[in-house]
């Protein structure tokens, strides 16, 4: 896709991916972009590093729908590049507490994470802006806020593996 055909959302996301917060996470091997945005738009495919757990992978792929970024938050779930589909339930990251609440494969068939930063999930929870005033997606937030949320859960005591 040539530059003049890029949407404002794509240009904004590209700018955020070239900016300090994303690059710092990349330099610290916390996350990265797996494929060129031009090939995957209106999705963005990231890898996110996970804490070490027995029999669990050291990172997960996250496929985020970003068509209306940043007015709507990114929305997506864990991804399997081999099947080209949402990661199967048995390979989904699991745990207790917040990991179980946010990474619920049953929610929208794994196509969204159950969190107020997820634009798709947020659109069906009108009470969340009041219940989660700090965590809610706003256009001031950046994709790094979403990646940091996933990274933190994958390094929390609630995460047990797959």
């Amino acid at each position: 896709m040539v530059t003049c055909m890029k949407t404002p959302s794509q240009r904004k996301l590209e700018a955020d991916l070239a900016d300090g917060p994303f690059k710092m996470g990349e330099a610290n091997k916390k996350w990265g972009l797996l494929e060129d945005l031009e090939k995957t738009w209106p999705y963005a495919l990231f890898w996110v590093k996970a804490g070490q757990r027995q029999y669990a992978p050291d990172c997960f792929l996250l496929n985020l729908h970003v068509e209306n970024y940043p007015s709507a938050g990114p929305s997506g779930g864990f991804w399997d590049t081999e099947s080209g589909d949402v990661l199967a339930a048995e390979k989904w990251p699991k745990g207790t507490g917040q990991v179980a609440a946010v990474f619920r494969h049953g929610w929208q068939n794994g196509k969204m994470l159950y969190h107020p930063l997820d634009g798709g999930t947020l659109s069906s929870h009108s009470d969340w802006p009041e219940k989660h005033p700090s965590d809610i997606w706003t256009s001031e937030k950046i994709v790094v806020d979403y990646l940091e949320m996933v990274f933190s859960l994958l390094h929390s005591g609630d995460y047990t593996g797959v």
Partner: peptide, 22 residues
Amino acid sequence: DDASAEKLVLQIAGTNERPRPD
């Protein structure tokens, strides 16, 4: 201790702002 503290975060007083750890 770690167990009780893991879910505590810093919030700037008088705001809803919780800065990212980075």
